[in-house]
Design a protein around this nucleic acid. Structure first.
Lengths: 217, 217, 217, 217
DNA sequence: GATGAATGAGTCTTCATTCAT
DNA sequence: CATGAATGAAGACTCATTCAT
């Protein structure tokens, strides 16, 4: 009901409304994560929540807003969790490793949320057909990682590389860790995360010596 | 159709049929890449091809098969291209670099195909709701990279790491390179590819010395 | 509600209730006149009144009754106004002219009410699908005009014509005056009213002479 | 299907399509005229035509286009019929009378069409909420009548009056004739038409003499 | 081989109404 | 008295599929 952000002039939500919205969002997450975005109709989400279709329309401006809320909620949760832990690390090197491990942990705790997030990212579109959350939605993450990398380079912890490409690649590798685990549930995500941390540790660290270590060709 | 003659295997398709199928596949690629999977209805694909909707149903068993054919065709093209070039390299290290560069090249040559491939990968589902091409579809790639890595490790070119995790991460990083370029067309994909090659060069190569180089924690 | 007390007639409504009903009716008028009948949902009316939807249901038996009340209120106001002024005229000829001018005046004073009235007239239907207010709703007006015309004919002021057809045509012309003004706000309604009075003055008055003035054919 | 006017570059309709469109339009007319615009859902129209809902969407771009087609078809039929007959009259006075009689005739022949026309006129709205056919849609009629009146004034057949107001009033009176007949089916529309012709004959004709004929006040 | 036509299930959304608080 | 919440039916529209020609 009504709109959400920029609450100009109205309406802190009642307790019961917040509860309903939360319930519907959870159902949306569950349905999307199980059946995929395309099959996640309002009917199905309502059915999963045990409510009537109209309730969703009552509490959300439309499917679009519901999806955005799913993203916002999940995203916020991930960010808080991860950022807090990353900031507790002292060196850039440790920060990268912590970032990877923290995301992996969150992923183990809430696989459905992450899956739903992924589905919405690649599917939700604006009216003009453009992706609502494209790569651009990851900008904040890229930016944060870039800063981190630049800091490490300034400190001499990291070698000289393009921080943006490193950020994009790291983020993609983390995402794939989740996807891989989803496909192979017997796979050990923690071990994967540790390996991944090693990979980017080697990829970023300053050259141990002044050898002829640059890439050939 | 697809059943009357020589039903034990495939009947060989007539010239005209092959042409029609190719034409339809190309239109599917174009529409998916422009409008996204969800908006890629048969009607739109037919319109783009300048034919009637019925023709698609005539030449393909259904939308599902059409999508599978799009994947198969594109996939085959990528694989041939990349594999041939990778095999021309002599060391494992060079092979990895060549792999990255070859994919990047293909991607620049056929962005629509890659985009369509991505859309189908994350959207096409079996009747039971499971993803038709999940991570599992990348198994052949993973397998190939694994072998490559293992070879390099045996040769002493590469350090000791989990080849599967490395394969998954590399593949994801390559995919993200494409996605990033799609979102930021002014971004230089070749430079990105070179950076990426450097990243995985550092990530895989044998330790230059017997330092205290392992990651902490 | 509307039933507990004094159920044999109407219970007299409390002050607050009358105020609420008036407020809701005004909002209904405003919304109908701005957005049209089809878009005048209870939700919109409630929103315009700054109250909750339930209130309307509480004070009115349903949308149907609300609409009827809008008609009744407006209709009463028009009738009182016009009738009083018409009766102050002394000849039938002046009465017709006064009738036209009085309606025009009311129309300028309350355009929204007239517009809403019109919308409800052509839209509100009984459960069986028949128009709630069809032409039949204008019977009182027709009747009044008929009497007026007949009086004028008896006095020799008016020529011999069918008073019912004249009444229907006059009323329609008056209504159209309003509609035309609504469509062309720069149009001068008072001039229009004067012209219209002239038209029906010529149409009704007794033949100036005993010419061969009857219509041909 | 596809769009209609401005047939740039495509598509004369097949025989069968024309037939279907005609059939659907007739059903729309019937349903609107019987149940009213608000109840004339695509479902009902389809049911009346004995076809599935989707057929309508297939042959028309949407409900909006269907409604416009109903108007266009009916309008064209009326116009042709009436204009042809009016032009056969020789004096302005006769033309006015013929106009009235011709519309009355058409109205008797196709009451449902006229009723549907009326319903759509006052109900169909553009996306922005404005009436698709407001008074403005009658402009061509007004214009034609105006010319006619001006001609008569120039010839000395008609007295001096505002042709626009006369046109609006005449048209409204004609419309009301139809509405009245619809409400009172036992009413004789031909007699009504004759009376109406008399009314406007008196209203328009030149003053027989130089009496004291101007309106009082 | 190809087409246009038709179907019917499924999509989101709107809405008048009811009800517990 | 008033509210927010919920319902369930009905709305227009989309789409993959089927079929006669």
């Amino acid at each position: 009901m009504r709109s959400e952000i920029g609450r100009e002039g109205q309406h802190e939500r009642s307790f019961i409304e917040k509860a309903r919205r939360a319930q519907i969002i959870e159902s949306a997450v569950a349905v999307i994560s199980e059946a995929g975005y395309a099959k996640a109709s309002l009917a199905r989400i309502a059915q999963h929540a045990g409510i009537s279709k109209g309730v969703i329309s009552y509490h959300f401006d439309g499917k679009h807003e519901l999806m955005e809320q799913v993203v916002e909620q999940t995203y916020t949760a991930v960010a808080e969790n991860v950022v807090r832990r990353v900031l507790s690390a002292s060196t850039a090197r440790e920060m990268v490793r912590t970032h990877i491990m923290a995301v992996a942990e969150f992923m183990r705790a809430r696989p459905a949320h992450l899956r739903a997030l992924g589905e919405i990212f690649v599917n939700l579109r604006n009216d003009d057909g453009s992706l609502r959350y494209g790569v651009a939605a990851s900008e904040p993450i890229y930016r944060g990682l870039e800063d981190l990398f630049r800091g490490g380079q300034a400190d001499g912890e990291f070698r000289d590389f393009d921080p943006r490409v490193m950020a994009v690649s790291l983020q993609a590798s983390i995402d794939s860790m989740f996807g891989y685990w989803a496909a192979y549930p017997e796979h050990d995500p923690e071990a994967h995360a540790r390996e991944l941390a090693d990979i980017f540790d080697h990829a970023t660290r300053a050259e141990p010596r002044t050898d002829e270590s640059a890439a050939p060709q």
